[in-house]
């Protein structure tokens, strides 16, 4: 009896130590980059960032924020200009479509739904070349508006899929009750269904915001003028080809990831539910 208990305790301790060691290993790069960002690079390169004693300064952050060649303050502004509409527009449009997919049967319904799934499996690379010509033709190449449109369209497929799955779980009786009570279709959708879907909408908004904010590929391809660069593009250009100023880069990295990280801290539950939800179950 006692031996069993002891064995169990040892097992428990080993598991805890191993898992936590792994967790610490996982967070180490974040700690490291944070330490580097807070201290003069000359000091870090000599002693290593793990020596806690030394000078602490915000100089790297100030440099990154108003760097003469790629000022992050401009990148931040551009990132917000792109990300906010590219979150709201597809969320709204996809919610309408998802509701139709969840509640009505109509010709081509299955085919259109499969089309959405195929788009979800497509790499972004598959759209770039024609989009480049299209944007040039309509004058949106190297424009934030063009990027907004492309991100909005690209987000529609997964958001529709996600929200359709969510609407499927809502009891139809509530909408039927509203219809008997005299509500119009628009009223039912906007005043009953959408408010009931707030958790799903929060998940979608958090994830779409993060993805658009984090996007690098579309921005790299469709933005050329430095004054139009979004934050991810600027951080990437801060890293020189041969010499790396880690202090500046660390501060830039932390600033760039701080926006989705803050969102994650605020909406952690919705994040996780969203990441899991849109993949689990059809």
């Amino acid at each position: 009896m006692r031996r069993r208990g002891k064995k169990r305790l040892v097992k428990y301790l080993v598991i805890n130590i191993v898992v936590w060691a792994l967790a610490i290993l996982w967070i180490l790069p974040f700690l490291g980059i944070f330490m580097v960002s807070m201290r003069p690079f000359s000091e870090v390169i000599v002693k290593g960032w793990w020596h806690i004693i030394g000078h602490y300064t915000l100089k790297n952050y100030l440099d990154a924020w108003s760097n003469p060649s790629s000022p992050l303050k401009v990148g931040f502004k551009n990132s917000f200009i792109v990300t906010v509409p590219a979150t709201i527009i597809p969320l709204f449009i996809a919610a309408l479509a998802a509701y139709v997919f969840a509640r009505f049967s109509f010709p081509l319904r299955t085919m259109l739904f499969i089309m959405l799934l195929v788009i979800m499996a497509m790499p972004q690379q598959m759209t770039v070349v024609p989009l480049f010509f299209m944007l040039n033709k309509i004058g949106l190449y190297d424009k934030l508006e063009g990027l907004i449109l492309i991100h909005s369209a690209w987000g529609l497929a997964w958001i529709t899929f996600f929200l359709k799955n969510f609407f499927d779980t809502l009891p139809r009786e509530i909408e039927e009750a509203a219809r008997v009570d005299g509500a119009s279709d628009a009223h039912i959708f906007f005043r009953i269904v959408l408010p009931m879907s707030l958790p799903a909408i929060a998940s979608v908004a958090a994830i779409q915001f993060t993805w658009v904010w984090s996007d690098f590929f579309y921005a790299l391809v469709f933005l050329v003028s430095p004054q139009n660069y979004v934050a991810t593009l600027q951080v990437a250009t801060m890293k020189g080809q041969y010499y790396v100023d880690w202090g500046l880069l660390a501060a830039g990295s932390i600033l760039t990831m701080s926006v989705p990280l803050i969102l994650y801290a605020l909406l952690q539950k919705y994040y996780v539910r969203g990441m899991v939800g849109w993949t689990v179950k059809g």
């Binding site: 597809p90 449009i93 788009i119 759209t127 989009l131 299209m134 449109l149 909005s152 369209a153």
Partner: peptide, 10 residues
């Protein structure tokens, strides 16, 4: 939106 900015480009 999907037609013009996703499907046609694909």
């Amino acid at each position: 939106l999907i037609l013009s900015f996703v499907l046609v480009p694909i």
